[in-house]
Design a protein around this nucleic acid. Structure first.
Lengths: 228, 228
DNA sequence: TCCTGTTTATGACCTGCATCATATTGTACC
DNA sequence: GGTACAATATGATGCAGGTCATAAACAGGA
């Protein structure tokens, strides 16, 4: 596969001019990861910036009592590790492959050089971080004031939008997702996540097969996400 | 007051070279706000980037049921409104003065021009956003897995660090802070915030006077913040 | 095919915190 | 000083959801 083709398709690099490509493309490498592989760990010295090419990665954060929290799910075309790479302190979360995936990689040094030479790339990073700050703000609000049912409905809808595909049955979330993952994304326990999802299934809002969720009644889900 | 002196003292502009100052300083204006004044509203078209000169501003987000969530408190030297200004969609939260304050302002257009001309300024924005993403991640983790006592202790400690001053009695949080504010910062209700703060006071961990909190026993507070 | 570990399921119980109600205290402004 | 309003305080009650326990369903490997 031609790496240039792939990079140019990624929104991350939409801003670069044609002649800049030559210098940029060669700086990137490519790495494969199996499902459940760790890409980097929380606190680790950030030596690499990643761009997801295929597959999905979850970023999570550990607590002392063992409870994990999934901060976000990163899909094709998105940056991974940018906060750590730019401030150099250490990755703020752990990145783990949700499914087999391919990541483009660039060393921290090359990345910083890139930004100095091409301001437009810095704007891309700013844009990426802006989106994440918006989404973080929404997640904070949701955790602070909403009940579990609402948060799970909201999370399913969002996953459907960012990682979904339309089928005759409804929108399918294209990733292997356990109830534990759902719980970690919504700040609840496995048991409660299972109960809520089971209720959704009984009420015909979703269909579930092992590691697969189909959003059947999107309207009803939005109703729950908005009000209660 | 000489605006140049003030800007140069702000970490936000630490990266600019001397000769760049001339072009930059004139782009900034200055505005005064009274306590409780709104600086901008959630969703509003972002026409201005702010830098806090003196005073403190809280950024909050409303929910449909009337419950507010305080996302962060912005103090001297920090950027305000950057997410909205850079993606142009609309400010992601409402900004309100916690106390009388002075803000430096620059129009969105001038700001974008600045970034194009001085890449180093873009790095400053990236740095600012990186810090906020770290802090958001921590807030999300805290809301997802910790109990109210922990979250309040943690919030008090953080406020003490970012907006505190040492006195014989202990570290004083230098801002008028109601229990409602504390509740909105920790995702709980006024009543619970009052109960927890009262308990802390009875246990001699803090002293409180109307709109003022002194962290007396920092060790005990950290104990609570970490474990329970 | 059986065995083993993971994921889903469901019940019983308990608690942290929201909710509602009702003072009391403090601050600002006549 | 007294009035008005916001902030603090505290009790009573209920419930969402956490915790613990047990088991069924399913997937993968020997």
């Amino acid at each position: 596969m031609d790496r240039r083709e792939i990079l140019s398709a990624l929104p991350v690099f939409a801003g670069l001019s044609d002649r800049d490509w030559e210098k940029v493309v060669d700086l990137f490498g490519e790495r494969q990861y199996q499902k459940d592989d760790y890409i980097f760990l929380e606190g680790e010295a950030p030596r690499t910036l990643y761009v997801v090419k295929t597959g999905k990665v979850k970023v999570l954060r550990h607590s002392t009592d063992g409870k994990d929290v999934v901060l976000r799910v990163v899909g094709p075309g998105q940056l991974l590790g940018s906060v750590g790479v730019f401030d150099g302190i250490g990755y703020p979360g752990t990145a783990q492959a949700i499914e087999d995936c391919t990541l483009l990689v660039i060393s921290r040094n090359d990345c910083l050089t890139l930004v100095y030479r091409f301001p437009v790339f810095a704007l891309t990073v700013i844009n990426d971080m802006g989106i994440r700050l918006r989404s973080s703000a929404e997640q904070i609000r949701s955790l602070a004031v909403e009940r579990v049912e609402q948060r799970i409905a909201r999370t399913l809808i969002k996953l459907g939008q960012t990682a979904g595909a339309d089928t005759p049955d409804g929108r399918v979330i294209e990733m292997p997702l356990t109830r534990q993952d759902v719980a970690d994304m919504t700040g609840t326990t496995v048991e409660t996540a299972i109960r809520v999802m089971s209720k959704f299934r009984r009420d015909e809002l979703i269909h579930t097969r092992r590691g697969k969720v189909v959003l059947v009644d999107m309207d009803a889900l939005m109703e729950i996400a908005e009000a209660g």
